[in-house]
């Protein structure tokens, strides 16, 4: 067994935290783990990508183009930009809440309609699952829990090699004590939302 998750988003969205949770859960499940993270200059509002590979015999911290089993997209444009990481069988979870690049916010560049982003991804694959993670997190109590929603959604993906219980337990060990309740509900709400679509 080998399984690769590519986690894409924008610096500050919690991509690193999500990859840490998935990686630690994979280690607890007894898999080998090889990961690669983006630190440094790109974190200043740039695109970020975390690669998580787990299995009986993984060594490489990077995956080939098209080699992902799952893409965890924290942001619509970043998910769309990284389509070549996927193949026709790759599952793609896409959070629909945009983070505008600074040049878009300032009106120098256009951000596409989210519906157009969805349509563009669907023209390439039939395995897209969308989620409004930030909205769900707000309902759970705070927008900062969007990454917990995303991890809950991953737990609902068919064929994902780590159990829901293990993911949730690892998430709650990772977050600060006072945020446990918030993250617990956010995780459950993300899970339920994805189960209803899966």
């Amino acid at each position: 067994m080998k399984y690769t998750v590519q986690i894409v988003g924008v610096g500050g969205q919690g991509v690193l935290m999500a990859s840490l949770v998935l990686g630690n859960a994979a280690m607890k499940a007894g898999y080998r783990v090889a990961m690669s993270e983006v630190h440094g200059m790109a974190q200043r509002g740039g695109s970020v990508l975390s690669t998580l590979r787990m299995g009986d015999d993984v060594a490489s911290p990077l995956e080939a183009a098209g080699g992902a089993d799952l893409i965890m997209g924290f942001e619509p444009v970043e998910t769309c930009r990284n389509l070549p990481l996927a193949n026709r069988d790759t599952g793609i979870i896409m959070n629909l809440d945009p983070v505008y690049p600074s040049m878009v916010a300032a009106g120098f560049e256009e951000y596409p309609e989210v519906d157009d982003v969805i349509a563009s991804v669907r023209r390439r694959t039939s395995n897209l699952m969308t989620i409004e993670a930030t909205n769900i997190a707000l309902r759970a109590g705070s927008a900062v829990a969007a990454n917990a929603v995303m991890i809950g959604a991953v737990a609902a993906i068919r064929g994902f090699p780590l159990s829901k219980e293990l993911l949730k337990e690892t998430l709650l060990e990772t977050v600060p004590g006072k945020a446990v309740d918030l993250n617990s509900s956010a995780f459950d709400m993300g899970y339920e939302d994805m189960m209803s679509k899966n």
Partner: peptide
């Protein structure tokens, strides 16, 4: 596996800023 083709819509860049 064969990678999916890049998206067919224009995407705004996101350089570090």
């Amino acid at each position: 596996p064969v990678p999916l083709a890049p998206a067919d819509i224009l995407l705004p860049g996101r350089p570090p800023a």
